[in-house]
Design a protein around this nucleic acid. Sequence first.
DNA 1: CAAAACTGTTGAATATTCTAAACGCCGGGA
DNA 2: TCCCGGCGTTTAGAATATTCAACAGTTTTG
Lengths: 188, 188
Amino acid sequence: MSTTAPSDDIGTRLRLVRQIYGLTQRELARRAGVTNGAISLIEQNRVSPSISSLKKILDGIPLSLADFFTHNFAASDQVFFAAAELTEIAFGETVSMRMVGGNLKERALQMLQETYQPGADTGEEMLRHQGEECGIIVSGSLTITVGAQEKTLQPGDAYYFRSDIPHRFRNPGPAPCVLISANSPPSF
Amino acid sequence: MSTTAPSDDIGTRLRLVRQIYGLTQRELARRAGVTNGAISLIEQNRVSPSISSLKKILDGIPLSLADFFTHNFAASDQVFFAAAELTEIAFGETVSMRMVGGNLKERALQMLQETYQPGADTGEEMLRHQGEECGIIVSGSLTITVGAQEKTLQPGDAYYFRSDIPHRFRNPGPAPCVLISANSPPSF
DNA sequence: CAAAACTGTTGAATATTCTAAACGCCGGGA
DNA sequence: TCCCGGCGTTTAGAATATTCAACAGTTTTG
């Protein structure tokens, strides 16, 4: 139950949050009803703000005290990922995935670009894990089995199911199949 | 991203946490390296503490800033459940479960059966470890101390508390006590 | 290039919090 | 009963946070 303690470097933390939200000290100060000087001093850790001041400032973002202390902003400040930055994962010869934000922590969501070569098959045993998953076919076609249901999806088609329902992905066609999928919570 | 905002009534919040942990203002002040007067003023909301002060105080409990702002202590301060309060769950005609703390959140537990012979006592020093624990008395009776609260439980009664709150189990009666308990994460 | 508009920082004055030492209250023992 | 030790509260003064206004640097505009 004990949350991992974030850095108690409040100043850096505030500065980071403010910059993520694209605000200047003066703009945030105006919204929060404090002076820009106060924010400057806090961000330099030259003073330790009172809760009331910090709350006023966070209200100007807006962000709750709980979120301010809970989230690891340093780890989530990367918003854009070049194609080359996506983490590549291979399963055997026929299935590969490119993961968005594999370096991020505490994420509630995971997005993958999955490629199934002709003949690829996640197997008879049927996958089962926690969470939910969802995806859209980008190119090629893919036969997906979820529980008792089975369907071959074409580009533009999509799926959404609870991951604890046994499921299986196969590519019976002659062309590779690419799809974009999302899982929550991340399964790896 | 937005966590449900806890009350910004810092004073009441601090008082509640302090009392849950069974500390007096003076004892907490001593551990935290602040004066009891400061804690008194904060708990009355007559001042809004600086982050540095609040952090010092919470360190004396100990509790992280994140946990302080995140957890809803008011909602989880029910430690004891009367036999009649246990949530009854039925699976068909033949299977039923009686659930402890169905209203609590963030549960992830493992169960054990424990037997306490007459006179058994986990000791004056009060146990403290990570995680949460929970249990139901099966037979006999057991006196449990959690923070400032103490109660002698009878068969059918139950408990649920965070394990970092100091606790102690004693069997003052003439008969062995059997209970079913659960821990998260497993502490042994 | 210069002026204007912005950025973050700083020093002196003000406002607030924190400490130290007292207060009043209550319960337990001689 | 009185006294002692504990509790939370209060007050004046020391320590700290915040404001206000000015400063220097950078980018934008003309």
